[in-house]
Write a protein that binds this DNA or RNA. Structure first.
Length: 256
DNA sequence: ATGGTTGCTTAGCAA
């Protein structure tokens, strides 16, 4: 089973690249973030023609997440479904081939100390509560997405210039680690302990040509799956060429 | 020196 995650930064702007990538890579499951479309504007038809079902939690202009899959998803649940009054579409879950899949788009947080940063940290705590309510670490669960956190300085090309940013701040790293410690393995880290491989480069300041990147997109798997993860990688070719997303897809391969 | 780009929507926000 091949599972990917990709922040496409608008599914309409990225439609042709997304379809070409699905044809090339043929993942069984792709978690997508930053659709930037309402449900009724989602391009169901071309994705279906490419051979994929789509479970969609859309939002006009901002956010929006989906799970694309070869086999039909069941038990689709949108949002964190907690007490908070939160209109932002940042999470969707489904069951595919007896495996639970969650596609998450963690808030960016703007700058440390801002209201948006507080919302980011709170959202990550709500995600941890959501995992506790809905799942068991001994089950088959993959949590994928744009976490907007680089777990370690190994995951940052220029750690000194990103120190204290919302992507690297200790409180954000602690919040991410708290989610991971619920019962996940970061399967990319498992296969690339040396670091130096990134999933996001700012559009500005020639960040990609300078490889000023960070690894902020992750595939977290529970033990029954992490123990069967045979490889993981980041397709940085997708950051090149005409109208790329600012994120590259992360892919993990599992036996069974 | 505090820069720069992209996308959605149409000048301002979010990333």
């Amino acid at each position: 089973m091949k599972i990917g995650t990709w922040n496409v930064n608008s599914i309409r702007a990225r439609q042709e690249r997304l379809l070409a990538w699905l044809r090339k890579v043929q993942p069984d499951v792709l978690c997508v973030q930053e659709l930037k479309v309402a449900d009724e504007v989602f391009p169901y038809e071309p994705i279906r023609e490419a051979g994929y079902h789509a479970a969609v939690h859309g939002q006009k202009t901002y956010n929006g997440v989906a799970i694309l899959s070869r086999n039909e998803p069941t038990n689709v649940v949108c949002g964190l479904a907690d007490e908070a009054d939160d209109p932002q579409a940042r999470l969707i879950a489904a069951e595919i081939d007896a495996t639970h899949i969650v596609s998450a788009y963690v808030p960016n947080g703007h700058v440390v100390g801002s209201d948006k940063y507080r919302y980011k940290l709170d959202w990550m705590e709500r995600l941890r509560d959501y995992l506790n309510r809905r799942f068991d670490p001994s089950g088959r669960l993959v949590l994928c997405g744009d976490f907007n956190v680089a777990p370690d300085d190994l995951d940052v090309a220029n750690p000194e210039s990103w120190a204290g940013s919302v992507l690297c701040h200790q409180d954000a790293r602690d919040a991410l680690d708290n989610i991971r410690r619920w019962g996940f393995t970061d399967v990319f880290r498992q296969h690339h302990p040396e670091g130096g491989i990134y999933s996001w480069w700012d559009y500005r300041m020639l960040a990609f040509p300078k490889n000023d990147g960070l690894r902020i997109d992750h595939v977290f798997a529970t033990e029954p799956l992490a123990g069967r993860c045979t490889s993981a990688g980041i397709d940085r070719e997708e950051r090149k060429g005409h109208k790329p997303s600012d994120h590259a897809p992360v892919i993990a391969q599992f036996d069974n």
